[in-house]
Design a protein around this nucleic acid. Sequence first.
DNA 1: CACTTGACCTGTCCGC
DNA 2: TGCGGACAGGTCAAGT
Length: 289
Amino acid sequence: MPELPEVETVKRGLNKLIIGHKITVIKNDNLKSFPNAKHDVDQFLIESIVEHVRRRAKVLLIDLSTGYTLVIHLKMTGQLVFVDDKTRFGAGHPTDSLINSLPDKSTRVIIDFSDGSHLYFNDQRKFGWVKLIPTLEVPNMSFMMKVGPEPLEANFTAIEFVSRFKRRSRTTIKAAILNQTVIAGVGNIYADESLWGAKIHPARLVSDISVAEFDNLFTEVRFVMNLSIEKGGSTNRNYVDAEGKKGSYMDFARVFRREGLPCPRCGTEIIKIKVASRGTHICPNCQQI
DNA sequence: CACTTGACCTGTCCGC
DNA sequence: TGCGGACAGGTCAAGT
């Protein structure tokens, strides 16, 4: 999915586009994408006003005036795209833009607003979901209860970063950094990018990594996340922002999906291996076991 | 408990 | 062109 920078980009886009909008209709194509009962939808979603859009880890939270929140997980291929019919075919959008072809066959949920605009939840693989939950119960959702700290929070320190890993010392650093209960928001792209930045081989055991290396990793995680947010996220395949636009971080990636190309630091050919059952990109010279 | 693996889905790409 | 298999940004539930 969309990892932290992509979800953050969608959140920022929605905050510019849908605050104050009133929801009039919701349509869904299967229960998996939007499992709520019609009764709750009629009572707490229809006629509600969008008040805030928040993010926690890789989860989007759209707070409504009814005291309910739309909790959205994009998983691997989810998209959340706002389309205003007044601008759909207008200037600034090429005719082949995604927004001109929505809804399409991967559209799972459509939210209509009272001014005639729409929010499309697209998800090719159907792993993602939208759930309507009382706002006060969101922190009690099982994922929210166990998810780790936000790496970009100003008060999150290198000391806490290291201590979060200590309890997971018997696994590889790649598995640990992908574990959302250790730290929130890091997925496969930014795991590889930050491990390359810190010159740590992803298959090394957590217990064998020094505090100095953890300090470097902490810096690199924050660096790649911040850079990616600045670039509008990574479009590896499907990802687009709330306006249907792709992110450009992949133009700046150092190892991810760059197997066969030279390492930007030493020129050695980047290779792709498997670690923690995930495709993993490394420089075999900079990152040694 | 910590850890690993398979399952959830659809689509694409690569080798034959 | 077609077919089979591997693989894809993430998380769970089951297993060990």
